[in-house]
Every structure is written in C-alpha cells, then in structure tokens.
Write a protein that binds this DNA or RNA. Structure first.
Lengths: 215, 215, 215, 215
DNA sequence: CATGAATGAGACTTCATTCAT
DNA sequence: TATGAATGAAGTCTCATTCAT
C-alpha cells in the first residue's frame, strides 16, 4: 500500500509549511486590534498555537514579522484587484464599480486592517511605508488611471484630469475601510457601507458624465 | 479704580500656567510622529524643556496625557469649523467649499495628526474613541448635513439622501489629511492637495446638481 | 511496570522547581534585614542568582512575593509546634517548656524574622495581618490554652484564667525572638536566651503553682 | 498700652518655635501607621500644615527627621518612668506595678509606636538602634534592676538572678504595646491589656515570692 | 522664614529575544 | 525542529530634595 511516491506533503511537512502563515495570521489579527507596539509576541505565539521561540525560526524579529504580515497579504490582494480590473471587458463604469466593491469586501477579512496599520506606523517603518506607497498606492493609482482613461476614450466620462480624479474615486471606499477597522464599533448608528458606496458611484458618475450638448 | 488691575501674571505664574500647553504641544508632536506607544515620556519632557517628573505634575499618566492632547486640540478646532459653516450667509456650495478647505488647512498644524492618532489607537482607548465619535465625527456629520439640507432647499442640490452623502463630501478631504500625516513623505510625486480638493468640489457639485429638465 | 517510574526530575525541571524557593529564601533574608520597602527586587534577584525578570515568572509582584514568603514559611513552622505540643504525652509543664524552646530555636533560622516583618508591615498589608492573626496568633493561642487547661486538670497549675495567662507564657519567648532579629546586634552584653527562658519557666511555674494548703 | 516688655513670645515666634514639634508629631503619626519608607514627606507636611520645603528648614533630611522623632519622644518618656521609679518610696512591688502600668499607658499616645518603629528599622538605622539600645533598653533595664534589688533586700522577692529577671518583668507589657500598635486592629476578640497586666503582676510576684519556710 | 514647582535618581515591571534542552 | 524558561534593557512613575520667589 505504498501508492505512488506522492507529492502530497507529509503531515509534518505540511504542518511545518503552514507555520509561517499561521503565525502571520495570528499576528495580523493582533496587530490590527492593538497596533504594532501593543501586540506582544507571546500573544501571537499563543494565538498561533506555537511556542514563543518558534516565531524566531521564521521571522528574525518583531519588526520583520510586522513587515512580513503587511507585505505578504498586500500583493495578492492588489493583484486580485488588478485582475478584476484588467480582465474586465465591460465598461469602465462597471469596472470601477467592481473594483470599489472588491475593496470594500475586504472588510470581512483581517487584511482590511492593513491600511490602518500602515498609516499608523508609517513614521516608525519608513521602509515599509515606501514599499506600501510604491507597491500599493502607486499601483492602485495606475490601475484606476487606466480605467478612467478607458472611460474617457469610450465616452463614458468627460475629459477630466485623470491623476486628480483618482483620489476622488477611491477616498470614500478607503474611508469606509478605515472606519470599519477603527471607529465603527463606537458609533451608535452604523453606516451601511454598501449603500454609501452605491451612492458614491451614483454621484461620482454623474459628476464625471460627459457634458450634455445643449440643443 | 486704583490704577490698572494688577492681574498680570508674575513670571512664575505665567511660566506655571504655560507648562501644560508646552507639554501637550511636545506630546502632540511626538505622538503624531511615532504613535502613542513608541513615544517615550522622557522625549516629551525633553522636547517640552522640562524634567521627566514635571509631566506628572499636570497629567496623572501617559494615557491621560494622550487623552488631554486629543481632547484639548480637538474641540476648538471643530468649533472653528462650525463657526465657519453656520455663520456663513452664502450658498451651501460656498459653505461646503469653505469647510473643506478649512479642514485641509489644518495640515500645516500639528493637530492634523489627531485623526491618524485616533484611528490608530481606537482599539486601545475605547473611551477616547467613543469621545471622538460623539464629539467630532457625529458633530461634524451633523454640520455637513445642515449645509446639505440648506443646499437642497435652496435648489443648489438635487434631493439626495443627506446622511449617505456626508461621507462622499468629507472623504477626499479626510484622506488628504491622513495622507499628509503619514505616507506623503514617502511618495515620489506628491499630490497637490488644493488641486485635488478643487477637483473634488467640481465633480461633487456636478454630481449633486439638480437634474436638467429636458427641453 | 516498565522499569522504574522515571519521575526523577530532569536537570532543567529540578532547576525550575527550585526557583521559587530560591527566590523566596533570598527575599526572606533581605526583607528581614531591611524590611519590605527598603528591599529592592534587583537585590533579591542577585542574591537568588537569577535575573530580575525571573522573579516575575513566579510571583506577580513585590507584594505577592512578600506574602508568599510569609505564608510559605509560617504554617509549616506553626504546624511543627502544634505537633510538638499535641503529640506530647508528658506533663503540661514539660510540654510548655518544649514549645517555648522550639519557638526560641527558630532564632537560628531566617524565618525567625517573620514576626518582626509582620509587626512592621501590618499597617501596609491588612490582608496579611489578618491572615497572620488568624492563622498564627490565634492558632498559637489555642495551642497554649489547651496545654494550660490540661495542666490545671492535672493539678500542675492552679485554676488561673487561661486566656489571660497565654500572653504571660509567650511574651518572653517572643521578645527574645524580636530582640534577636532586630536590636541584639547593637547591644554590648548580649542576653543568653536559653538562660532567660529557663528562668522564665522557673518563675512562671512557681507563679502558676497550686496554692499550698496551709497546715 | 505697651505694657511690660513681655517675654511672652510673639504670635509669629510662638508659631515658629512650634514648627519642629508640629512636624515631628505629624511624622510620628505617619511613621507609626506606615513605617519609615512608606511615609511620604509630602504627607507629613500636609498633616503638619506646612509646606513641603519647610520640613527642610528644621531637619536636614528624611532620615534625620525619623531619628529626631524617635529620639525626641523617647527620653522624656523614659525619664518620666525613672522619676516614677526612683521617687517612689513604697515597696518594690508597688513600684514595678507603677512602672509597667505607666508603660502600658503610652498606648493611648502616638509614641507607643516607637518600639515597633525601632524594631522594624533597626537594620537600616544602626546608629539609631545603638542609641535606642543604650539610652532606652539599657537604662530601662538598669531601672528595673534597681527596683528588683530593692525588693530582694527588703524581703519582697527571693534571691533571683536580677539581670535574667528583667526581661520576664518587662516582656508582657512590651508585647501589649507592640500588639496594640500593629496587629490588634485585625484581631477579633481584643485582649484587655489592663487585665493581662494585672494577671501578669499577680503571677510574677507569686513566682518571685520568697520561699515559704516549711514549718 | 516659608513655599511648592521643578527635578532626576531610582524603583518596579514588561517583554523582545536568546538558548539549553 | 520546537520549546519556554531566563534574561536585562528600557519604559513608566514616585518622591526626596532643591531653590527661585
């Protein structure tokens, strides 16, 4: 009963391979709740179900763990968005709608706390901030710019200044994400993020609509 | 009427009275650079030009100093905005423009870091978060709502859902403030916040404009 | 039944198990020399041969270390006395002699400083004081009372008021213990505690002796 | 209306002269409650109704204040006892009774805490301990010895070893004083110190009584 | 003389990091 | 590979002491 020399990892290997992710997940959860400094590695270890020392087998120190958490979960996320955007063969309008709703959808997942973390710790982690700016902010910006240009070319939007428009498109969605990961638990009457986003798109697209030729 | 009321503070008194502000200012500067936990009270003392122990003559502990910093600089700021908004006898459009530019103008002052601080530490300071939500977020929201309603009544805007519109109005300005206090130093081509805000208002007001009756 | 039950502690385990005692012993020595407040945990750590942080692996804070020291060494001591007293099948006179000499004998051991410590810190540690009163003072009193009653029943002592007599029996021995742990190093001509105690017993037993019927 | 150039101190002078005592009294009260280290000079100042700095006009530092408190109140007290003892023309028995009740009577006054304080801090204040041993313990011992010798000479006591007897005489009274200033608040059924002392004297004098010549 | 604001040394305590097992 | 006991640097906070007023 030896079967084929399977590529399936052994239990041990699989567990071993899973370690870094387990640790990163635990760390992300705690970082996003408490911030970088207030998170104790002992708690991360406990939550990940490993010993404290084990963390150091995979990450050289707390700072690098933080960086790993942010960097690891960032790119896949952004790439997903890019895929959404570029593979989409429909109108620019629809593409933007898809992108923003995808962004908002991260609210259900722990990674939605990453923007908050990066904003909070940018001063203490310049390298991370630079990485984030280059790999997330800038790429995200270019992504939106492409879509906006397509929309202009296709007559969906009037000929606005594209770089200046990007923040307008993104800001409400980002604000919803930040709100959700920080202050929303303390508000009495919570916003319905989906409604807000729908309304945003409505107002935005009216604002970007080509000017009606007067008869 | 025996000559001038000699309530000029003595040198000593003046110095003493100034201490809390000096300390709060130093603390705000460091908190906004490094965040709450990464700021050492020793550094605050040094920056304020006082001894370490002096801080404790005016603030019972680090947390309360943090709260004092936030609370002290917040309300005057908001009240200034409210004054700007409500005393304004012009159109709602102009009022919104004034408010958002006033918000953006805080970027030159240290208080602009407070939103970032509160967002970052909300999880660790629930009472502060609640205070912020109630006294800043909620008041600010009501302020914008008033102006929007006025704009609708006066025919400047179409009959949009007011509460849902507030985030759209505010988000770009807030994002600019957050950007300025965190990631902007790491970006290569910095945004021109004034241009962004102008563009935002342009797009927004088009988006909110009453629907043209078709001829 | 697979060979000897290998519950021999490993080197590591043994070391670990010994830590609390080592720390308590070091703490007792220093507390008894200097008192609670004047003892620095750094010194305790050094004396115990561990790092400062190690203390906190076993005791949550300085107060609890103090309590642990007192409580841990107290009861075994008292229980030893109770065993001495109750298992004794001889006369009450002999039993009292045994008890008091056992009490005096603690002077060779660090625990003899505990009464001094408790007396000195009772005001700052009400819970500890209460514990001491209930578990040591009261139990000790009842112990002596039992012996005195036996002595009266057996005609060794006259019918004195038992509760009032307890302090008379104990006071000289206690005073010797306090003297030994505080002032005796500063006295020129030290008392011989054994002689004092012998004399005490002689005078006491004469004082408690049944009244001779006059012929 | 100038009157005679009175020697009565002016209000200011009187207040000034009283300062040191007021401070010492406040300090004694707090030292006896909390011990030396746990007493803050700020509290002493407040209780004495003076500014913190004022203490330093009369005492060079906390340690010297402590010494002054102990030394100041000690000798008058002891001298009073000596006067009681030596001026007494009655029997030795009566003299001892008077001395011990005078000792017990201090329990109503704050100075009764001094023995506790000295015992607790002897290790940290060797000079004070030596002073106490020489000026209080030794003098007190000699005082009692004189009375005991007189009692022996006058046939009130049998020919006991006088130095060995001193502790027996004093111990119960001292123990009552210590008990009163430390643990008694935590005991449920408080001792009646007067009854105990009466009983002590009764038992003691029987124990010291000359041996009855057998008929 | 008297004050109390200011100071900074020093204590307790935490926690990232190491390393023997 | 994995652990967690041990460490000690570093931070917060207290309070005896000073000194300008």
């Amino acid at each position: 009963m030896h079967g084929p020399p399977s590529n399936l990892p052994t239990r041990r290997t699989r567990r071993k391979d899973a370690r870094p992710s387990e640790i990163r997940e635990a760390a992300l959860a705690l970082f996003s709740e408490r911030g970088f400094a207030a998170t104790r590695l002992g708690d991360v270890a406990e939550r990940a179900g490993v010993g404290k020392g084990t963390i150091y087998l995979y990450f050289p120190n707390k700072e690098e763990l933080f960086r790993a958490v942010v960097r690891h979960d960032l790119l896949p996320n952004l790439e997903a968005l890019e895929a959404v955007a570029d593979s989409d063969a429909t109108t620019a309008t629809t593409t933007l709608r898809t992108i923003l709703f995808a962004l908002l959808a991260t609210c259900d997942r722990p990674i939605s706390a990453i923007p908050k973390l990066v904003i909070a710790e940018a001063g203490n982690f310049p390298a991370l901030a630079r990485f984030y700016v280059e790999e997330v902010t800038a790429r995200g910006r270019r992504l939106i710019e492409r879509v906006l240009r397509r929309g202009i070319e296709q007559g969906e939007f009037r000929a606005i200044d594209v770089p200046l428009t990007v923040p307008l498109v993104v800001a409400p969605a980002l604000m919803l994400v930040l709100w959700n990961t920080s202050l929303s638990p303390y508000a009495e009457a919570p916003l319905d993020p989906v409604k807000v986003l729908e309304h945003h798109l409505d107002v935005l697209f009216r604002g970007l609509a080509p000017i009606q030729p007067s008869p």
